[in-house]
Amino acid sequence: MAQVIVVTSGKGGVGKTTSSAAFATGLAQSGKKTVVIDFDVGLRNLDLIMGVERRVVFDIVNVISGEARLSQALIRDKRVDTLSILPASQTRDKDALTKEGVATVIEELSKDFDYILCDSPAGIEKGALLALYFADQAIVVTNPEVSSVRDSDRILGVLQSKSKRAEEKKDPVKEHLLVTRYDPNRVEKGEMLKLDDIQDILRIPLLGVIPESESVLKASNTGNPVILDEPSPAGQAYKDAVARFLGEDRKMRFTDYEKKGFFSRLFGGRAA
């Protein structure tokens, strides 16, 4: 039976799609059969971040409305062969998604995949609710910033009350915190919420910390999930997070301030 994982945040622009793409790729690299679904109907972007935008023929709405078979809509990744992408529709509105329709799609995907990742749209409207409804586990993406932390708390409340597991009074959705765009230098200066503070407030287990990194923009420019940029700090941090998700014990990295040495202070080095 496949595990359904929602990548969610409430707030927009915090890195849900970047994290979904990286995480799905990482799971697939570990040999797990993984499919990542874009739930942002009308504003799809996972296809671009994954670099498959020119291969989209059918989408999840076509599948739900019976216009295409699931196998026709799934895009097999060319870099990692255990990875598939199910794009969202760009032209239809979000009412095209129905609970029954999504249930059928997830049920069918469960037969062939180990992990089904649902990339949620921002907000707490229909699309976001459907993305989290079937979840067994949730990755809550949070920036070290007040509005993002507040919205994450809100979405945790929604997970605990409106998910299928909550409605059916089963074991609750397993929650993971993924802090993105973390900048230890600004934390050191007292300009940014500390990791401990965010954990203190949200009180869910920490899965990983992704440092603010230039490689994330470079990755989206070229349509390669940042986890494939192996030397980059963000790529390594995502690799760590995936390993932890799969049960490995790995120390948090990129969370501490590196004091600049004499030369970098003098000439102004910038972290990549």
Binding site: E145, V146, V187, K189, G190, E191, M192, L193, K194, D197, D200, I201
Partner: peptide, 9 residues
């Protein structure tokens, strides 16, 4: 600069 993070928390 005065630390603003504690206020945020």
């Amino acid at each position: 600069a005065p630390a603003t993070a504690p206020q945020a928390k």
